[in-house]
Design a protein around this nucleic acid. Sequence first.
RNA 1: GCGCGAUUAGCUCAGUUGGAUAGAGCGUUGGCCUCCGGAGCCAAAGGUCAGUGGUUCGAGUCCACUAUCGCGCGCCA
Length: 554
Amino acid sequence: MKDRLRQHIADALQACFSQGLLHSGVTPEIVLELPARSEHGDFATNLAMVLAKAEKKSPRQIAEIVRSALGDAGGIVDKVEIAGPGFINFFLAPGCWFGVLDEITEKGSAFGRSSLGCGMRVQVEFVSANPTGPLHIGHGRGAATGDAVASILEAAGFEVQREYYINDAGNQVNLLGRSIWLRLRELLGETVDFPEDGYRGDYIREIARDLLGGKGLEIAQLPEAEALGVCGLFGMQTVLDWIRRDLQEFGVRFDNWYSERSLYERDMVALELDKLRRKGLTYEDEGALWFRTTDYGDDKDRVLIRSDGTPTYFASDVAYHMEKFERGFHRVIDVWGADHHGYIPRIKAVLAGLGHAPEDLEVLLIQMVNLLRAGEPVTMGKRSGEFVTLRDVVEEVGRDACRFFFLMRRSDSQLDFDLALAKEQSADNPVFYVQYAHARICSINRNAAEQGVEVPKHGEADFSALRLEEEIALAKILARYPEALESAAKQLEPHRIVFYLQELAAVFHSYYNRQRVLTDDAQISRARLYLVNAVRTVLANALLLLGVSTPEQM
RNA sequence: GCGCGAUUAGCUCAGUUGGAUAGAGCGUUGGCCUCCGGAGCCAAAGGUCAGUGGUUCGAGUCCACUAUCGCGCGCCA
């Protein structure tokens, strides 16, 4: 509808030029916005104000000329008003809004999808938590966000890969091994000196017990260095299994699990660093190899290879990101904890050195989650090393509430997550409110079936039976869904979908409360069924992107 | 100290590329069940968009400075 109107305006403008009513020949992009107030019509454009300078006429004069050239825009415009400093306000013919219902019914689950991305290959890398402990609530927010962003991009016509980067090569694996080894010896009755920086969570003891139940006694006989290696590997595999299981139960699926260790096994780090060296992007100083990140806006240069010859984490990360582009992705999106924001300039500097545009890599920062219960902060465990796990929260409030809550705010702003609210079965709980709208429509469908009233098939609804303001309002908000999805895709902001859903649900609940769908008048009943089922389709399409289910009854 | 981000209603937050009288939920106050699921709906009150200056037809939005808060500044990962 918006596009049709835009085209009519563009045509009218051209007509003005060819008839000599306007002279500049300037054709700005025609911006149509949704006015905040209904007195300002359904759409408004600032076209006349933009043209004022080039035309050397007042905006209102220009607006008047454009209006007369536009006429009724092929019947879709009811009324055009010129207001304020020179806005042109369009009031659409009421009936034309219902065309979107046919479109929704025809396209079904494809309604809202677009080809914005033109099949461009994008990688979204997210979670990527170190395999040294269970996923906690912060990882959960990253998981929900990354997954939703990936789904939104898919819906916008990108070809998306979801990747998890496993940090299985660094010191933390050794430390994990040592922590398990010490707990294992503790279980064997020894007194151990547990290091300050060891992993102190109870899960370490759990892993040690598992190991002991298997071949722990043999391990205890091994030389320490060897035993540490076995413990580290076993611990990492155990934790990775937990992570996979938790993510699966959270409804998050990855296309690829990428091992940092494999970078070394394939010599990729050395290979990629060599490329940098040849490009003159590195230098040696004090026995270490440095990257000239300052040439590309970083605060200081960074070490790739330490003076003792071992690579830094940065080195493998550089190789990893270089390889992402070599794998053919045109866009790479990383989802990181917000505390890593200082790391962005470094990685961007590397990519800039390799000739990539800064926007080829986008980093989404995930802010902290404050866990509350009925308004009171939930304390993060008794001992150090303990935190609230994703698993615990999903078990308590369910997957749907969890995912919805994680996505309710912009990802880079802190989030209050109230466990009590997330479980509540009332309108106060936003997840429930939205899902309930869907369930209600399903309930209406069941009643309709019982009464023998059929939902009209595509194109068979009689819109003349839809005359109410609320019905037009519903059609209008449904028509906005593709835009909401598009802006969420452009900005990488899933919360826009959440806000849209809450608004749509509110308009529906309000309508439901005032008007009966199933009435004595079969014609009206059928038309309203058609309308509310379009609502149901859009609710389902949007919830699917967020990874939230669409219950038929609750 | 330097860098990044934030500051919008009592609370938690939205606010598209700069547009007209700044929005929502919660909380507060007051209403609505003969009715497809009241697991819901309607209404009211509530604002110096942190402050100052600038850019322009027009600023919550862009720029500069100030204040406050958060985070980051390893040859850690």
